[in-house]
């Protein structure tokens, strides 16, 4: 549902055109188009078709149910906390990696990619083992009456984990191609650290940053596996939109799960449109 592929930079240099080979070209295009139509477009259309199969009235009824409302609010809350945190972290990490040389840089890069390579379910279990009853942190948490797993903080943590690399991975290549010269020039001209950041660095990376945030947000709102493990599945309290869709599907409701799924599908569509816009914008400015 969400475009959770490993992000690539919108600012990549234009490819050098290969000598024309018409047959191969059209064959490849046909394969790509057919593949996207069958695996992407068809399911998307089906979601909307099923959602409206019982009419508008039922569609609205499904979306206005209190449990669905609470799932929407919770999804916004979880994304609202985890996306800004990961944006701040991604900015810091990519800055450190692109602009400085230090020991353990490769290690940091590898750690950054960890959430891409770990199954989200395993990530969720990791948090259960850490913060759950009998877990490593359990005595401390219990002493302070804090509850993490099977409550909102656990869902935020799990979401932060799976969306961890998105912003940083997006910014590192951008910052690397930019190099350090401009910042060094600003610093030699007497600008402070913050000023350099706001007036030199940020303007040059802003589209990459937006793009990373958009992807990060799409994944945060669409995440299922990790959140599934730590949620506790309390209807109206710890169900995010993807969990709500699953639950409705198992309640034999013909249209409601698809109605809620259209919200996530719209999110995906909005993400793709924003992505295209940001790529266009950044290409125009370079």
């Amino acid at each position: 549902m969400n475009p959770a592929s490993v992000p690539h930079s919108p600012l990549r240099a234009a490819p050098v055109p290969l000598p024309e080979q018409p047959l191969a070209k059209w064959l490849l295009i046909a394969v790509a188009v057919l593949f996207s139509a069958v695996f992407l477009l068809l399911p998307l259309v089906n979601v909307f078709y099923q959602a409206f199969s019982s009419g508008w009235a039922l569609y609205w009824k499904a979306l206005s149910e209190p449990d669905t409302g609470s799932a929407i609010r919770l999804t916004l809350l979880v994304a609202g906390i985890s996306v800004p945190l990961n944006a701040a972290f991604g900015l810091a990490a990519s800055w450190a990696i692109a602009k400085f040389d230090f020991r353990g840089k490769t290690l940091l890069l590898t750690l950054l990619d960890l959430p891409f390579s770990i199954s989200p379910v395993v990530a969720g279990l990791l948090f259960v083992l850490l913060f759950g009853a009998g877990g490593l942190m359990a005595p401390w948490l219990e002493a302070h009456h804090l509850k993490i797993i099977f409550a909102i903080p656990g869902m935020v943590l799990a979401t932060i984990f799976v969306t961890f690399p998105y912003v940083a991975r997006e910014l590192i290549p951008v910052m690397q191609t930019q190099g350090r010269e401009q910042e060094e020039a600003a610093l030699t001209l007497g600008a402070g650290g913050w000023r350099t950041f706001w007036h030199v660095t940020l303007p040059s990376i802003k589209w990459g940053l937006f793009y990373g945030i958009v992807l990060c947000n799409a994944r945060a709102m669409g995440e299922f596996g990790a959140v599934f493990v730590v949620s506790g599945h309390i209807a109206g309290q710890t169900d995010t939109l993807p969990l709500r869709v699953e639950k409705l599907y198992y309640e034999f409701d013909p249209a409601a799960p698809f109605a809620v799924a259209t919200l996530l599908a719209l999110l995906a569509v909005a993400t793709v449109v924003l992505k295209a816009f940001l790529e266009w914008k950044s290409r125009r400015e370079t």
Binding site: H145, L146, I148, I152, P153, T238
Partner: peptide
């Protein structure tokens, strides 16, 4: 922010 989200979790109960 972290303490806010911890508090939210506690409040949920």
């Amino acid at each position: 922010i972290l303490s806010v989200c911890l508090a939210l979790g506690a409040a949920a109960h």
